[in-house]
């Protein structure tokens, strides 16, 4: 996975250098991921409750969850590289669990579909564009700031 988050920073260990068994992880790693995924999912629903939107509306809750999650993942990938001995439980909890659970691709697609169904093609196009551009900028800025902070430590 040369382009995976697991290896997108120079300080990360090459994940493919480890045996599959180690990279897949076991019960402890999965528990950390499950716990993080539960928290991220609850946070995403909390945002949706706070910023309700119906089918063909602009969904601020999903957009905000996705952009915050992308920024947080950028920081985690730089600051918490996997040690050479195998996947870090803290990183798995934060990155795969919380960021993965907080952010969602399928809900964004469902919202885009609702917009298109409602005849709001331009809204769908701008929602997709804003999500992607904001998500990319969030990752770029987070990675850059985290790497700069890293250098100062």
């Amino acid at each position: 996975m040369s382009a995976s988050p697991a290896n997108s920073t120079p300080r990360s260990a090459d994940p493919l250098a480890l045996p599959a068994q180690v990279r897949r992880g076991g019960a402890e790693l999965w528990l950390a991921i499950a716990f993080g995924g539960a928290l991220g999912t609850l946070a995403r629903f909390g945002l949706a409750e706070a910023l309700p939107a119906s089918g063909a509306d602009w969904h601020w809750a999903t957009l905000i969850a996705n952009v915050i999650g992308a920024a947080a993942l950028g920081v985690i990938l730089v600051r918490l590289p996997n040690p050479a001995s195998g996947p870090s439980r803290l990183r798995a909890f934060l990155a795969t669990g919380i960021c993965g659970g907080l952010t969602t691709f399928s809900t964004m697609q469902r919202e885009l579909l609702s917009m298109i169904d409602g005849g709001h093609g331009a809204l769908a196009l701008s929602y997709a564009a804003v999500s992607i551009v904001a998500g990319l900028v969030a990752v770029l800025v987070a990675v850059r700031l985290a790497a700069r902070g890293e250098g100062e430590r």
Binding site: A72, C99, T103, T104, V139
Partner: peptide
């Protein structure tokens, strides 16, 4: 996931 999609693209 949206975050990994973005981070992968950045990577």
């Amino acid at each position: 996931t949206f975050s990994a999609w973005m981070a992968d693209s950045d990577g």
